[in-house]
């Protein structure tokens, strides 16, 4: 299983979502993408997108102001 990390710390909407979309579209061979963001709105934004696309995903609230979103490509 190919894993990739995407660090969008310090970025605000809509850039985290656009980066996530772009990376997923560009790197076709990865199965799991872990997105790190420190904005709760960006986390919910990516959450909404994953939900509307039907991806499997998990959100970890690391409780220090960082959210880790694990997106699994089917």
């Amino acid at each position: 299983m190919a894993k990739e990390r995407l660090d969008v710390l310090g970025e605000v909407c809509p850039i985290p979502l656009l980066m996530t979309q772009g990376v997923l579209a560009k790197l076709k061979n990865i199965d799991v993408l872990i997105v790190e963001t420190d904005s709760n709105q960006a986390a919910r934004n990516i959450f909404n997108w994953c939900e509307s696309c039907g991806f499997k995903f998990e959100i970890d609230d690391l409780e220090n102001g960082i959210w880790e979103i694990t997106i699994k490509k089917e």
Binding site: E58, I59, D60, D61, L62, E63, N64
Partner: peptide, 10 residues
């Protein structure tokens, strides 16, 4: 810190 526990939203 809760790490790697799946969907850990308070």
């Amino acid at each position: 810190m809760k790490q790697g526990q799946g969907k850990t939203i308070n």
